[in-house]
Design a protein around this nucleic acid. Structure first.
Length: 268
DNA sequence: ATGGCTGATTATATCAGA
């Protein structure tokens, strides 16, 4: 029995529904976690997903930007939405999926990007990002996460290791790779003893990216990417981790998202 | 140091992304 779970910042689920449909047909994940759906719940293409066999939906959207969703072939239980930083952004949704005799909690996040300048004094977006991470740290360090089968997935908007960016030294002052962010993310991983599953299957000394800027017309040749999208597993899932797939080719599709789908396979 | 691109919106400029 296997479970395949994918995270993908789709950058408008309505605009790119046909790409999602292609991905689902070719890669057949059981659970798809989306970020930046960019629509209200009533505008989410729910019936289109149901026609493709993804009948179970947990949606948290808002008008125009942000927004997360879990789309699943398997029933979803205990759907929750946490209002991080108390400002009403749709940046988190969680649900429980059952496979074989196991029950796995899935938490899907869209962490704030953080704006341009990595300075909390002049950039409130950066302050918001750090506050979000502090709250995330406190919340998922609870035993209920680390001692049970749990997956943390999503666009965390941080590339925390040296080879998660194209040039570590050049990127130290770029939001997504600054020490205040990368230190916090490392602390969260350490405290919860989370398994960074992408790095479980690719050594730390190899470059690994999930996002390439729209501002680079030659993204593939320049390859100045970042690993912003993550799938972390709690220790009880360790025996079941099977493989990871980063669908780099999706960045080359017509009118693509700037993020590509990242999938984890678990075998029970 | 700058600018480069993309998507959504009571749109034709502005905000958000990162």
């Amino acid at each position: 029995m296997q479970l395949k779970i994918t995270t993908w910042n789709i950058n408008s689920v309505r605009l790119r529904f046909s790409q999602v449909a292609t991905f689902l047909a070719e890669h057949e994940p059981d659970v798809l976690c989306l970020q930046e759906t960019k629509c209200r719940d009533a505008e989410f293409p729910a019936s289109d997903f149901r026609k493709l066999g993804y009948e179970h939906l947990a949606i948290s959207g808002q008008k125009g930007y942000h927004g997360v969703a879990i789309v699943s072939r398997l029933p979803l239980q205990e759907v929750e939405r946490r209002n991080f930083c108390q400002i009403g952004d749709a940046r988190h949704i969680s649900a429980r999926v059952s496979v074989a005799d196991k029950s796995i909690r899935v938490d899907n996040f869209y962490v704030p990007a953080g704006g341009d300048k990595p300075d909390v004094q002049i950039n409130p977006k950066f302050a918001h990002k750090l506050s979000f991470l502090d709250e995330l740290d406190k919340w998922i360090s609870q035993d209920s996460f680390s001692k049970n089968m749990s997956l943390i997935v999503g666009d965390l908007n941080i590339a925390h290791l040296e080879n998660d960016v194209w040039d570590h030294r050049a990127m130290l002052k770029e939001v997504s790779h600054t020490p205040p962010e990368t230190d916090k993310l490392k602390q969260i991983i350490e405290r919860g003893n989370w398994i960074d599953t992408l790095r479980r299957f690719t050594p730390d000394d190899q470059k690994l990216y999930t996002w390439w800027s729209y501002r680079s017309p030659n993204w593939a040749a320049a390859d100045k990417g970042r690993r912003l999208d993550h799938i972390w597993a709690s220790q009880p899932l360790e025996p079941y981790l099977q493989n990871i797939e980063i669908l780099r080719e999706a960045r080359g599709w017509e009118r693509p998202s700037d993020h590509v789908p990242v999938s984890l396979v678990l075998k029970f």
